[in-house]
Amino acid sequence: MGLSSRTTEGTQIITVQCDRIDAAMAIQFKEDMRAETENDTRRVILDLSNVEFIDSSGLGAIVASMKQLGDERRLDLAGLHPVVEKVFRLTRMDTVFKLFNSLDEALSAGSN
């Protein structure tokens, strides 16, 4: 699937190294996210800037990734392409996640 991760000042940044998250890779994505987030970082930012397309299975896998963090840790999303953002908006999942235009914006917003 291809995720890369780094932690800066208590925030974990996970970058998706893949141009799409769809039905063919949703299960793998969820598993990889579980493995990457087995720590106690309070805030995780998922950098989606390489992701040019997402379908409802990919969306579901991102929701599942947030659920497996438990209720105390947050998952924010950054760098959404317009078509990816559209899927979040149409399904109203934009009301569940904080969406940031870029990783820099997400980092400077802090966790509040």
Partner: peptide, 18 residues
């Protein structure tokens, strides 16, 4: 339905809606 409880959030069922 998207409610306020994180663990109850839907992970599918959006295909035909879209």
């Amino acid at each position: 339905v998207i409610g306020n409880i994180r663990q109850d959030l839907p992970e599918g069922g959006f295909g035909w809606f879209l």
